[in-house]
Nucleic acid binder design. Structure first.
Lengths: 148, 148
DNA sequence: ATTGCTGCAAAACGTTTGCACCTAT
DNA sequence: ATAGGTGCAAACGTTTTGCAGCAAT
């Protein structure tokens, strides 16, 4: 699983004339290990805690490469920071975001793909990615303020 | 048109025990006048240019109230800043965002509403708002780098 | 009279950049 | 050898905050 992702990333780097460095693979591993959604800085901090010496600049840089390589995907939860999540080997899915307790429910629907395909065709638009989030209040009885 | 928005805002403020101040209506007017999408700071700068003396803090504060009041809506175009656009008296619509030239194409589809309604019902979720953006490359032949 | 709002400036926050050194090719 | 990557710290742009004074209720 991890080995496949590494292989994919290695190929991607090679094809793009990007150098293959140990730091980049450290970031890849940390990203795959991270549970849930993370900001680039969260990842940097997590790596620091594991005594990694990879710099913030490199984490930010690598996370962008991983996104291009489609090993992780970028999400927008409306809080002015880039969030990522590993999407390697996973199905496309969208998010219900509870604005009270921060809970995130995932869902997927093939009908959305159809809409996207049609809209792009109608507008001569070539999609690279999209974001779809529904914000609101979840059904949890003790749903209350706290962060992610 | 503007008068209606003012009335709606006034009611909203009153019901929420928020004070009715001239500054807030200055911001409302500037937001309604603004062509296209704007960040809170863009609005502040535009108001400065019109010799308004409303402060940055007040603009940020008021823009949030206008969003709650559903006179403007918040958009996320993945560039780490809150964008707004007047939605008073307008139909819901989504965005195709060209990541090369920054062009924004609007579209709307009732089928999306149906999906949202269904997903929320299935998950016992009470929606307040949602974001749906498709990123990619537009069909413009001379589409090239520049900002919004 | 009492809160809440305002303006200002400073701080916070995630992110990007400049630069000297290093290393994969 | 040489481009490209790295680490560090400083800069950046947007947003938030603290606080003293002001104004809507």
């Amino acid at each position: 699983m991890k080995a496949e992702a590494e292989e994919k990333f290695r190929e991607f780097l090679k094809n793009g004339k990007n150098r293959i460095t140990p730091e980049r693979f450290e970031v890849l591993n940390a990203a795959l290990d991270y549970q849930g959604h993370f900001g680039a800085d969260d990842l940097y901090i997590a790596m620091k805690k594991m005594n990694s010496s990879v710099s913030r600049a490199t984490v930010y840089n690598t996370v962008e490469l991983l996104e291009q390589c489609q090993i992780i995907s970028k999400r927008n939860f409306g809080d002015n920071m880039n969030r990522y999540e590993s999407c390697f080997g996973k199905m496309n899915h969208e998010h219900l975001v509870c604005t009270t307790c921060g809970k995130i429910i995932e869902f997927s629907t093939p009908r959305l793909e159809a809409i996207i395909e049609e809209v792009c065709r109608q507008n001569g638009f070539e999609m690279t990615n999209y974001t779809f989030n529904i914000f609101g209040k979840c059904s949890d009885k003790n749903c209350s303020k706290k962060d992610e």
